[in-house]
Amino acid sequence: MNSTKHFNILIIGAGPAGIGAAVALSKRGIKSIAIIERSDKVGGIPSFYKKKKGGVRTFIRWSRGGIPVFGEDYAQWLEKQLLKTKVQIELQTQVLNIDAKKKILTLVSPKEGEVNYSADAIVMACGSREETLAERGWLGGSRPVRVFFTKQLLCLLDGNHLLPMNNPLIIGSDLIGYAAAAKLKAAGASNAVIVDNRSGPKCGFFERLYFRLWSNPKYQGLSIKSIEITGNKTASGVKLNGKNIPCDGIVICGELIPNSELALNGNIKVELHSRKPVVAEDYQLSEPGWFAAGNMLGGFHGAEWCYFNGRRVARGVVNYLSQT
C-alpha cells in the first residue's frame, strides 16, 4: 500500500449533501478538500432521475418557489457548483473502511488501487438506500425475478430505456413510491397498485395530488399484517389477507435507511436498528473531527434540503477546525 495522502477535509459521497459541504467549505477558504465518490458521476440519487420528454419531475426546489425539476437537471446544477470550486473530485473511488481515531480512510479505485487518505476533518455524506424485504419484516413468499428496488427501476427505465413491467405493484407508500407509480405510467405501464402496512399512504396529500398529473394508483393498506410475494420464475402478484393481487413486476419503494456501515465498522456510534449515526451539536459524530450530512442522518429528506444541510454542516466543520 502506498503512503498516506493528507487533506484538510475529506468528504465521502458526492450527492447533494456532499456537494453542499464541499461548496461551502471551499467558499470559506479551506484549501485542500477532496470529495470521494464511488459511482462514475457526481450528483447522487438525483442523477439517476433522467430528463425525459413527458417525464416526471420529482425534485422540488423550494428555494426557487417550489418548482419541480428533473433529478438530472438538479444534479447538473450541483455539478456546476462543484466545478466552480477547486475541490479535488475522485470518482469511481470507494471508501472501504475508516480509522476513526486516526482520521484515515482506506479507499480503492481503478486508478490507484488501495490507498490511504487522511484529513483534519471528515464529512460523511453517504446517503441512504431502501430497506430490503427482510428489513421491512412483513414481506414473505417466493423469490421470483422482477422484484426491484426503486434505484434498479431508475437504472432500467431512465438509464436503459427499458420498461420492465406492464402491471406494476408497488410496496411502500411514501413519495418515492408515488413517484415510481407516476414514472411507470408515464413510460407506458398501467396504473400501479400501491401496498403498505398502514391505513393510509405515507406520501403527503399535496404530493399525491401532484403525481395525479401522471397516474392514479390504487392504494391498499388497511389491516395488512403480512403479505406474500407469489410467482415461480417471475413475480406474478402478492397475496394479502387471502386475496391475490396480480401484477407482472414489483417495486420495493422508500423506507430509507442510512448508509452508515462505514461509521459503524469504524466504531463511530450508530443506532443499530435505525442505522442512524448518533449526532451531537454541529452534526458531529461520536469521534471528534467526524461529521454527517444529508440522508445519512436518517429519515427522508429532499435533495435540496440535503444540499443546504451540507452547507450547514460545513459551518460546524469550520468551527471544529478553528478550535483545534
Partner: peptide
C-alpha cells in the same frame, strides 16, 4: 441484450418480454 439477462435462466428475464422500449 440487457433485457435478456436472467436471474435463473430462460423464463426469468429481468424485463418482461411483452413490454416495449420506451
Amino acid at each position: 441484450p440487457l433485457n435478456k439477462i436472467t436471474k435463473r435462466g430462460p423464463g426469468s428475464e429481468i424485463i418482461s418480454t411483452n413490454t416495449l422500449q420506451y
